[in-house]
Amino acid sequence: MRYAMVIDTLKCVGCSDCVVACQTENNVPVGYCRDWITEVVDGSYPNVELELKSERCNHCENAPCVRCCPTGASHIIDGGIVLVTPEECIGCGACIESCPYDARFQHPEGYVDKCTFCHHRVEKGQSPACVSVCPTNCMYFGDLDDPNSEVSNLLRNRKFKTLAPEAGTKPHVYYLI
């Protein structure tokens, strides 16, 4: 089992529905977010290209946050989802410093918080909140170890990229380009 998210940058319209869905589903405090939208404009008129995408924790295979955590609060569970145990987190910020994606933040209550791939929903066979609300269906979630899963098929047939692969983290959020 290796969970992954695939996001089609050609279908994303940057509506931020995924951001709001996540905040609602996970009770994210006001002013914070576990996912966000980036809009990148490339080129200059008339040859302009706009890329929209939803970003979040990449649930890296070689997760620097897990390596740097002094207490083991940051850990990887079955399926490759990276989680934080609030009762073990001392709020030292080492994981935040170590994340090339700046995907983590300090929850107002002190512990470190981030995207969980909605593992409480995934356990029940549902897809993460962001994926389930996407109005353009540009987000996919599934098991990379299953060659017939939707995500495996997409990565086989489409061009894709990951964010900052040079950081050596082996991210598991893929962007179709």
Binding site: Y32, I37, T38, E39, V40, D42, G43, R104, Q106
Partner: peptide, 16 residues
């Protein structure tokens, strides 16, 4: 060449 980059929906204290 990258002209502009916006990150919307994100202004987290101490991170951004």
């Amino acid at each position: 060449m990258q002209e502009e980059l916006f990150i919307s929906g994100r202004d987290i204290p101490n991170i951004d």
